[in-house]
Amino acid sequence: MIDRDEVLHVARLARLRLSEQEIEPMAAELSSVLDNIAKIEELNLDGVPPTSHVVEVTGRLRADEPHEPLPREVALAQAPAVSDDGFLVPSPQA
């Protein structure tokens, strides 16, 4: 079970606003999905290593050689707000 407070906490972490009407359904849906997921708790996984990459390769490093950067107007072209050749955002300290 995941309750209202947990939903709000997770939404805060995810920078997701939930309207008042969205909170309870979200709690119910997440709870039901988590119930189904809980099945994996029955498995004995002692000593089983986790797999984060199915591809068993290593390295794959890039030589320290420069490429052409994007022209600035291209970099900024899709931005919702631009000022002084940069991306304009509300100040984090405001």
Partner: peptide, 12 residues
């Protein structure tokens, strides 16, 4: 001053 500013510009 940092705390009085209301907008920021990001330079990547």
């Amino acid at each position: 001053r940092i705390h009085a500013s209301d907008a920021s510009i990001v330079d990547f």
